[in-house]
């Protein structure tokens, strides 16, 4: 176990119990009525969901940046998140969002995007074709989502779709945890298997192949790993942006820079970031709770800008 993993796991272990106490109503285990019920039925599933989603996005972001050898890569590039969002929007559009139907629709959407990506770029072609295919899928899914919004059967459905797309963890239950946690864990496992191949890619595609890296296997691992982590995250929480982009940057200085050493710490840091961000959303004194997706974008966009300026300075 490496030092950043231990450090981040320790921070997460500290943050989790604190997050259970924090909220519009701060819980004092000794005096708050129904404290155990609130924690077990409301706050614990929500915290675990934040951890699962953040971990998935962090790990997928680290793997994507390693694959594209680009610090500006984000899991959204593969089109899987927009595909999952389209699935969820369709369930709201059709009025079939009750119970677990919405997450199931979203997972079907993510699966569809993965299948399309595999069909276009799963057999041959280089990294550029793969990325362009992902961008095309993202663009298509985004257009279809906009179409669904503009053709919404009624104003209520439209507002439901728009607010769902903003991403949030409000009113989630253990059922959502049971969907997202195992899929995310499996996805992180798959991405972890890609670690050595991503390390080899540090030297470029040709040198990586000379080191025994199988480009096809790597592509499949990334499609499945990103599909499971990002797809399940979108299915239970909507679009949560910037985590996959920011987290690897925060973690990279703690590691030796090899992509394989970044995946697990990025998962832990992503979990920590989303958990803390969700707590901040809960405790901010606003009329309605700030949507998690909006909060992370508010933090993420300036960070992205700072990153671009830093890169411009380095290139100058």
């Amino acid at each position: 176990m490496t030092r950043p993993v231990l450090l981040l796991a320790g921070l997460l272990a500290l943050a989790l119990p604190l997050s259970l106490l924090a909220g519009r109503v701060w819980i004092d285990p000794a005096t708050t009525p129904n404290a155990a019920l609130i924690v077990m039925e409301l706050r614990l599933p929500r915290a675990l969901l934040a951890i699962a989603i953040g971990a998935g996005l962090g790990a997928a972001g680290a793997a994507m940046q390693g694959y594209l050898r680009n610090p500006l890569a984000d899991p959204g590039l593969f089109g899987i998140a927009p595909g999952a969002a389209l699935g969820a929007v369709m369930s709201l559009w059709l009025g079939l969002a009750g119970g677990l139907l919405l997450p199931v629709f979203a997972l079907v959407g993510a699966g569809g995007a993965m299948a399309l990506l595999a069909l276009i770029a799963g057999r041959g072609g280089g990294i550029a074709l793969f990325t362009l295919a992902g961008m095309m899928i993202a663009s298509l899914a985004g257009a279809l989502t906009s179409l669904a919004i503009s053709l919404a059967p009624n104003a209520f459905a439209m507002s439901e779709i728009v607010s769902w797309l903003m991403g949030a963890l409000t009113d989630r239950s253990w059922a959502d945890v049971r969907i997202a946690a195992p899929l995310t864990l499996a996805g992180i496992g798959v991405l972890w298997l890609a670690g050595r191949s991503l390390d080899a890619l540090t030297l470029g595609e040709e040198a990586a192949r000379s080191l025994g890296m199988d480009p096809l296997r790597l592509r499949w691992l990334l499609i499945v790993g990103t599909g499971l982590t990002v797809g399940s995250g979108v299915a239970v929480a909507g679009i949560i942006g910037f985590v996959g982009l920011i987290v690897p940057h925060l973690v990279r200085p703690l590691t030796d820079g090899r992509p394989s050493r970044l995946i697990l710490p990025s998962a832990l840091a992503g979990a920590l970031l989303v958990l803390v961000a969700d707590v901040v959303c809960r405790i901010l004194p606003l009329v309605t709770e700030l949507r998690l997706g909006i909060a992370l974008s508010l933090v993420g966009a300036p960070f992205f800008l700072w990153l671009l300026l830093k890169m411009r300075r380095e290139l100058a």
């Binding site: 050898r69 050595r196 390390d199 080899a200 890619l201 540090t202 030297l203 470029g204 040709e206 040198a207 000379s210 080191l211 025994g212 890296m213 990279r252 030796d256 820079g257 090899r258 992509p259």
Partner: peptide
Amino acid sequence: RIGYLPQVGEVAWNLSVEALAGLGRLP
């Protein structure tokens, strides 16, 4: 059995010399 050194000496991340050399053990 075959080590290959391409013409373009690309290194994507800012690895240390030791980590860079260590990539040779990947196979």
